[in-house]
Amino acid sequence: MKNLWILSLASLGLSCSALANSSSPSYDCSKAQGSIEELICQSDELSTLDRQLQPLYSQAIKQLSSDDAQTLKAQQRGWIKGRNDCWKADDKTECTLTSYQTRITELQISTASIEVPSATYYVCNNEAAFKLSVYFYNDTLIPAAVFSYNKAQQLSEPAVGLLTRTASGAKYQAQNATLWTHQQEATLTLFDQPPMNCKIQK
């Protein structure tokens, strides 16, 4: 699925101002199923996010091969299920809002609707052959970092980390990895492994 994150820069143009003028989601509210879909219909903010997500998802499908498109469709169904599970949350609106913001950020990156930044390269654990590459996205809905590492000529799958609150530096949380950056240094922590210390390659 690497090509989900390495797509053509010739990408879709979204008019966020036009989307913001709509007060209804992308689906028919008279056919809303479940409390979360009903909640979205009642919220201008959530409705706008729903309408912003739809063209991004459609564009991503068009840019992929048949097999990868099927994978993305399955991921989207999983995302919808997770969004609808927000009915279990104490703050249903905040849960749904975060779900949309996260998914839109992922799709903004995968469709290249946000300009791809230049990569920043790090050397980790003082090993010249252990390199970390990071693309810092500051213009996505949630600031994000797409990072992967090359160790012993083995390239990892790209991970998408979303910026989270931290006392100092910047912390990007991915599904099974955490990237913390501060000035010229970074700390990469993979699931159930010791942290790796990295410094910007000069």
Rank of each mutant, 00 (worst) to 15 (best):
Y100W: 02
I80D: 02
A186Y: 04
Y122P: 05
L162H: 13
T93G: 00
L190W: 00
C198R: 07
L14Y: 02
L19E: 11
W5R: 02
K202R: 10
Q153P: 03
D85R: 00
L132C: 04
E127K: 15
Q42T: 08
Q175T: 09
A119R: 13
Q108H: 11
D139T: 09
L14C: 12
L49N: 04
A10H: 14
Q70F: 10
S118C: 13
A177T: 01
Y100T: 09
N150L: 14
L132H: 05
S66I: 10
V134L: 06
F130M: 15
A112C: 14
E94N: 03
C198Q: 01
F130V: 05
T96K: 04
R165F: 11
V160H: 02
K199R: 10
L49F: 09
S118M: 10
T93S: 02
Y149L: 07
Y27K: 00
T93D: 03
A170W: 07
V116L: 11
D67C: 12
K171A: 01
V160C: 03
Y172T: 04
A129T: 14
A89Y: 04
F191M: 13
L64W: 12
H182D: 08
Y122G: 11
D139E: 09
Q154K: 12
L4H: 02
D91T: 07
K131I: 15
L188D: 02
W87A: 13
D67W: 05
V160F: 08
N125I: 14
Q184G: 09
D28V: 02
P143H: 09
G78P: 02
